[in-house]
């Protein structure tokens, strides 16, 4: 896991949310006594991975498995409960906002809902200028103007949009504007949380092409979150598959799609509806999806897995590296049962 050349290294990251509410809501009557009960959502449980410069790491997994929480934790928007985040060998998870400033400039985020992430009262011009001025306090008006023009041209934001407000644009246009905003500060690393999920196929292609172009021209590194497996297959160099706050498999994209190892990855890939090819069967999982509030003991997937045995119920499988370089957290794979 430790990799000195990595741009970002995440080690044993844990993030839980306390959702117990006020004191009164926490009190329960149990066996003739009042007890105080805390409810926590175990969103991220011991996550470790690293990203090399210029790599595109895709993160997939079902709704609620912790993808967005991971994105926010990486950017320091959620302080982790434990674990470490290193950016170019500097630890960044315990910095003050002031110490974090230089990193903020290097790391930018693009959100799923470009409407919610753009300030509705700011024109496109101000939306773009603001982050640049914030990080370049001494920039001259000409420098600002040049920068805005350069980025707008690169991202296909039309000059006539400059005086308009977010609500005047379609989803695809807004997403273009948020990408332009992220690029204004010349970042090295971009976390994109479902950047095309809200868009139609014909617009998705436009935005994905734009992200690929920016990556090539600027040598960017991406952490790319999506639930669309065909997008991830096309776009990323490596893929992490998450299930209930854990990484269950991490592999090079082609390796993962050709020979998925973890039982969850296998089920997931078998269920992707493929265009024009009637799939005979998909792997049918058993049981129900558990909640991250009552996390299952042992392997978080054991209740739905077709290969569960006694050890899976008892012991949490660790992410191990196979000869192929694939990392998998599964006892059955480790024991060569699958």
């Amino acid at each position: 896991m430790e990799n000195d050349n990595s741009l970002l290294a995440v080690n044993n990251l844990v993030k839980h949310f306390d959702i117990s509410g006020g004191l009164l809501e926490q009190l329960r009557w149990k066996n003739g006594r009042i007890v105080r009960r805390k409810t926590t959502v175990k969103a991220l449980n011991d996550i470790s991975f690293s990203i090399m410069p210029r790599e595109i790491l895709g993160v997939v997994g079902e709704s609620g498995c912790g993808k967005s929480t991971l994105a926010r934790a990486v950017l320091g928007l959620y302080p982790p409960d434990s674990g470490e985040i290193n950016y170019q060998s500097s630890r960044i998870d315990n910095l003050t906002p002031h110490q974090m400033l230089p990193f903020r400039k290097k790391m930018q985020m693009i959100f799923q809902d470009p409407y919610a992430s753009l300030n509705p009262r700011m024109t496109v011009k101000r939306t773009l200028e603001e982050p640049f001025l914030f990080h370049n306090k001494s920039a001259t008006p000409t420098e600002v103007k040049d920068k805005v023009e350069e980025v707008m041209q690169q991202v296909g934001v039309e000059p006539s949009w400059i005086t308009r407000y977010p609500h005047e644009f379609s989803g695809g246009q807004r997403q273009r504007i948020s990408i332009a905003r992220a690029l204004m500060v010349d970042p090295e690393f971009i976390v994109a949380d479902e950047p095309v999920s809200a868009l139609d196929v014909s617009i998705q292609a436009q935005i994905l092409n734009l992200l690929m172009e920016a990556q090539e021209k600027r040598g960017l590194t991406y952490l790319f979150i999506t639930h669309d497996l065909s997008v991830v297959e096309h776009f990323s160099t490596r893929v992490a598959v998450m299930y209930l706050g854990k990484i269950c498999e991490l592999a090079a994209t082609s390796e993962l799609f050709e020979s998925p190892r973890h039982p969850y990855t296998q089920a997931l890939l078998s269920a992707i509806p493929e265009l024009g090819r009637q799939k005979p069967t998909h792997i049918k999982l058993k049981g129900e999806v558990p909640t991250p509030i009552e996390l299952p003991a042992g392997c978080v997937f054991h209740g739905r897995c077709l290969y569960t045995d006694e050890r899976c119920i008892r012991e949490v499988p660790q992410l191990i590296s196979l000869n192929s370089g694939v990392e998998v957290a599964c006892h059955a794979v480790e024991e060569n049962r699958i």
């Binding site: 246009q173 617009i203 998705q204 096309h234």
Partner: peptide, 24 residues
């Protein structure tokens, strides 16, 4: 045709997607 060609599906991974210009 544009809709089907815009899907990542059969393309070489990492290559440019075929986009339909403009929007509905």
């Amino acid at each position: 045709q544009g809709l089907i060609k815009a899907l990542p599906g059969s393309l070489q991974p990492g290559s440019r997607l075929n986009q339909i210009p403009g929007m509905m």
